[in-house]
């Protein structure tokens, strides 16, 4: 679980180790990653909305 989230966050900043990649792809089940990625994207959006609204005052 944490490993998946870690990978998704790594994707968000676009940096990933090869070793971690090997781990991620050891199982060929992408569902966890897809769900996590969509969730993280949603959270990212929410944070950005919050920041924009605070900045807009």
């Amino acid at each position: 679980m944490w490993s998946i989230i870690q990978s998704v966050l790594a994707a968000l900043i676009g940096v990933q180790k090869d070793r971690k990649r090997q781990q991620d792809f050891a199982s060929e089940k992408p569902l966890g990653f897809i769900v996590a990625a969509i969730l993280v994207t949603l959270i990212f959006v929410l944070i950005l909305i919050l920041v924009a609204n605070i900045a807009a005052g």
């Binding site: 994707a11 676009g14 940096v15 990933q16 090869d18 990212f44 950005l48």
Partner: peptide, 19 residues
């Protein structure tokens, strides 16, 4: 250099490109 980073970043860009 950074094949892994490239793959992950491409996937992320695709999702974020909707925002």
């Amino acid at each position: 250099f950074g094949y892994a980073s490239m793959v992950y970043a491409t996937a992320a860009i695709a999702l974020l490109s909707f925002l």
